[in-house]
Structures are given as C-alpha cells and as structure tokens.
Design a protein around this nucleic acid. Structure first.
Lengths: 197, 197
DNA sequence: GACGTTTTTCACCATGTGTTGAATTGTGCG
DNA sequence: CGCACAATTCAACACATGGTGAAAAACGTC
C-alpha cells in the first residue's frame, strides 16, 4: 500500500473506527490479550496507535469492545434442552458447531478462549463460566451423577474447540460439521445418558 | 524471608542454580513463555535477574533447560502399541495419565502446553508434534481411516489435558485416574476401532 | 467564507523487558 | 597466605509497551 503521512483528518468518510475494531478482534483471536499490542493493532489498521486510544480508551476497554455481542449460551441452548435428553448429544454438538463455525462469532470466541487459556483467566472459567453457565444447562440433560457426566461432556467439547479452532489442526478443522456431529454426537450422548462405571 | 543484600558469593554451598531452575519451571507452567519474566524468576528464587542469565543464557535457553528430560512419547507408548488394538483405549489412557499425574513431569508438560497454546506455537503442534510424533504411534492402533480416527482420539485426549491440568477444573482434576480410564477409555477405543460414520 | 467539531498524527513520558559488563565476595587449591 | 575461579549483585543500555496532550487537516453548519 501507500505510505500515509499527512497529519490531520483523511478525505472521504472512511469508517476507520470499524477497521481498528476488526484489526483488534483479529489480533486478540490470534495472539490473546497479552500477545496483542496497541501498536500492532494500529499498524494492522493503517493508523497511528494513538487513534486506537482515542476511539476506545484503554487496552482493557478495547478488549471489551472487541468482545461485544457475545453469545448467551443459555439462550442458544434452550431449544436443545427443550427437546429432552433423546438425541441431545447430536443436537448439542450441532448448535454448538453452528455458532463456532460462524466467522464473526469465531473471532470473538477465539479471543476470549485464547486469553482465558493464556492469561490465567483459568479461574474465570473454572469458577465462573463452567459451573454457572454451562453446568445448569447440561444439568437438565443429564441422566444422573452430574458431577461425573458434566466434566466428561465438557472435556470432549473443549478438546474439539482446541483442535478445531485454537490450533486449527487441519484434519479436524476441515471436517464437515455434520460428520463431526455424526461421529462425536453419540459419544456426548453416551456421556450424558449412557452407562458409566 | 530476610532481605539479602551483600554483594558477592554467598556462604555455604547452596544449590542456587537448581532453585532458579525450579522457579523457572513453576513460572513457565503457570504463566507460559511470554507471561514469564526473567526478573520474576529471579525474584522467586531470591536472586538477582542477572544470575539467571549467568547460569542459563538467554530466556530461550532457560526455557529449554526447564523442559529438560521431556518424555519421548514413542518410547512411553511402545508397550501400549505392542499389545495390539484390543483394549488399547484403556491402556493408552492409563499410561498417559500416569505420566501427566507425576508432579515432576506435570510442570514440564504444562509449561510446554501453556506456551504452545499461548504463544502461537500452534504451528509447532499442528505441523510438528501431532503429525510427526503422535500420528505414527496412533496409526499403529487404528483400524482404518487414520485421518478421521486420529483427530478424534486427539481431541478427546486434549480436552482431558485442558480440563484436568491446564484449567484444573475440580471435578475433573480430582477424579481418580482409574475412574477416568474406565469412563473415557471405552470412548477412545471406539474412536480407534469402533464403527464410525 | 468563518468557525466549531471530529478525525488523525506527532512528540513524548513512565514503565517493564531482555541483556551485558564490571565490580564484589566467598571457596578451594598450591 | 596468596591466587585463580566461581558465585553473586549493581548499574546501565536499548528497546517495546501503554498512555497522554497538543497540533494539523478535513468536515459540517451557519
């Protein structure tokens, strides 16, 4: 591209704010919170770092802005729960993948996952998100012993996320969603309602 | 403890080098590579940061030293492979957990996992470790279609690692290893040799 | 066309980082 | 003892980072 060096406002009506936000989302998704620098975000958007601060305040504020419009899992999973435990494994996985495979959602979710895995937001996950949000939803689908079945379901789903989206291991990342549903869904069903020692 | 401020060598024969290394391992395991600072390692060992550089060279060298004596998965998994595919799921998981549940191994493995998840060593995993090391081993246990079965096995195992060791989600972290073997082993067996669509 | 407002860059500051080189103190050996 | 060597700290450099305040350029409105 060209070197842009004039000082004040640019001609035309470019939505620079949106470009900065997009660059921030991409960087947070790829490098996590600590790995993202305001300077890099500015550079990616072709903009002075100070402009990033001008639009969004601190780096924390930028992170929050990048995460805007997160999914409410309880809302998304409501229909899955409503149809009862039969075939819940497949339905659960299908709606799950439909959210994660949406590119717009994916950058946001990846940003939070990467940062949580990286920056010791682990506490946030294990004391907040999983028991408060995921737990109650899954509890409605589980046959018994939720303290055994929920961790098992969660572990398989988390493994899927990491392999398919965080690492993007090609065979897993390119597997069609319906194939995954057919192959992993029964396992989730087994964890939810099958015979467990 | 007390503020240590004298300049030169300490009296006695303290194995400061080992203390520094232990502190480095702990920090790498908890915070990953980027999250670990040489100054923090020095402080944790009660030592000037320059001493860290004196013993181990650069930060990269320190990281390598902290990872010393890693497990060679091919070696550890050799007996599992040798006994053939029958019951391989359980055996695989059992040896796997025996390595990870060893505290000494755990810090080293956690260090590499955290850094890989964090610092875009993702490439290392998806283009090096998994296809070169894990792949060939699992390939010997798999019934057919390795490009389908290996990612599935890997995803369940990775999910276990993340939940049990990285996040340390309590119900998963405290589940006895043999319970896990009994509950997840059959799923791995299914991924290895069962009927898959 | 004049003027206030918004957008954008520039020039800094304070802080934290990895790293280096010299200086100081103890240990062990002749 | 004297002397080489190892262990340890201090002071500093060069750089990157998050953040701030002022100045310049375009826009919108009267």
């Amino acid at each position: 591209m060209s070197a842009r060096t004039s000082r004040g406002r640019r001609p035309g009506a470019p939505d620079t704010r949106a470009e900065v936000l997009a660059a921030a989302r991409a960087s947070f998704a790829e490098k996590g919170f600590r790995g993202t620098t305001i300077r890099a975000v500015g550079a990616a958007a072709g903009v002075d770092p100070a402009l990033v601060h001008h639009y969004f305040g601190s780096k924390d504020d930028l992170f929050l802005a990048a995460l805007e419009m997160p999914v409410d899992p309880r809302e998304v999973l409501a229909p899955v729960v409503a149809q009862g435990p039969d075939g819940a494994g497949e339905r659960l996985l299908r709606t799950f993948l439909s959210v994660w495979d949406d590119p717009d959602m994916q950058v946001r979710l990846l940003a939070v996952v990467r940062s949580v895995l990286t920056d010791d937001g682990g506490t946030l996950l294990k004391e907040g998100f999983i028991p408060v949000v995921v737990g109650p939803v899954l509890a409605q689908l589980v046959a018994d012993r939720p303290d055994v079945r929920i961790p098992l379901v969660t572990s398989q789903v988390v493994g899927l996320i990491v392999m398919r989206y965080v690492i993007a291991f090609p065979p897993m990342a390119q597997m069609p969603a319906e194939d995954l549903v057919a192959r992993v869904g029964p396992v989730l069903q087994h964890y939810l309602t099958g015979d467990l020692p």
